[in-house]
Write a protein that binds this DNA or RNA. Structure first.
Lengths: 201, 201
DNA sequence: GTCTATAGTGCGATAGAC
DNA sequence: GTCTATCGCACTATAGAC
């Protein structure tokens, strides 16, 4: 269906809205079926009736298309830090941040997360990008902790630890046989980390 | 000096040895002076009297040239795990691993590490690669811990925490005004992580 | 060693929305 | 008129295939 027809029918803008989202969905489908490297940017663009050049207007590169919407997750972490009590310890702040972030990972989302992870796990280039996103999250989180008075290196350690807990939780959550909810797993993982530092053998 | 001359003079193999090392050195110089993106693979190859094609025979991509020799560091971590006492706790195992790894970072190495980090910090693509290497290190370490009887998720958490401590230590160590030795900083950072989990406020 | 597909960029043109 | 999404074309460099 041409853009012109759509415009006439609906009276909406010249361009169909949600271009980014449609590109993201098409990319996921193609990456799943043909693999990341077997899919060209032109393939994705064509799948939604656009040109390669337009794809690169929306996404800096072929990987980025899988990582849209992370800003909301980052914001949840930051809100969680802000929500911690006025005399909270760093550990309590990251506990609060992790709880806030966990609300994203509902039962309905689990399948989508699994499919996405299949694509990422199959390709080192995508893993690199995912690691960069995690590092950016840790940096934001550390900054939020510092602005709440946590000293520099402690803030970094706490933030990185939180991201580690989150990561372990996520990969447990998407495991094939896992039944527990995201928050339940996360509480358990955090407890395990604390126990580790306690030095129990 | 041409390859032929060297061959005649020394009677060694047809090609100058240490090709990888010379490419790595040339890449560092060029990345520092012109920037990573302002340097082509052909530039690097040419600087050592080789062709672009030869560069890609030695390194899978333009980034990889900065990450040679990491295997030795990984091995040091693994040896450190093995060196921990027979009844060591996971925390003691990573303590031992961190100590073993620290021996790499002598005073003489500090300047080289600093220059290298300038290049990496200036480019997200290089940061991605560095993060992938760190993730690989964490995975190897986790595997070593598991083979010493540490249960799955605890091993992952311990390994990731060790890599976090190592990373914080490294960036502190290369800071402009830092005087302490690598092992001294690292002991401090590890203590800080333990204190964090103790929940002190 | 050569050849080629693809990623990604720069720039100008178009065309509707406002 | 301005703004913005899109297209089209030319171009370089990477990286892999042959």
């Amino acid at each position: 269906m041409s853009v012109t027809v759509i415009t006439r029918l609906t009276g909406m803008a010249r361009w169909e809205p949600g271009t980014r989202e449609r590109l993201q969905a098409a990319a996921m489908d193609l990456y799943l079926s043909r693999g990341f490297e077997g899919t060209t940017a032109a393939d994705i663009a064509q799948a939604v009736g656009l040109t390669e050049r337009t794809f690169f207007r929306h996404f800096a590169d072929k990987r980025e298309v899988l990582f849209g919407g992370q800003e909301l997750l980052v914001q949840a972490f930051l809100d969680g830090v802000a929500a911690a009590g006025p005399h909270a310890s760093p550990l309590e702040m990251i506990e609060s941040a992790l709880s806030a972030a966990a609300t994203f990972f509902t039962a309905e989302r689990r399948d989508h997360s699994r499919r996405r992870q299949v694509v990422i796990s199959a390709n080192p280039a995508l893993q690199e990008r995912e690691l960069l996103k995690s590092a950016a999250l840790a940096a934001s989180l550390a900054s939020a902790l510092r602005s709440r008075g946590v000293p520099g290196s402690t803030a970094t350690l706490a933030a990185e630890s939180a991201v580690t807990v989150f990561g372990v939780t996520f990969s447990t959550w998407i495991a094939a046989d896992e039944q527990r909810s995201f928050p339940a797993i996360q509480r358990e993982v955090l407890r395990e980390l604390v126990a580790l530092a306690d030095g129990a053998r």
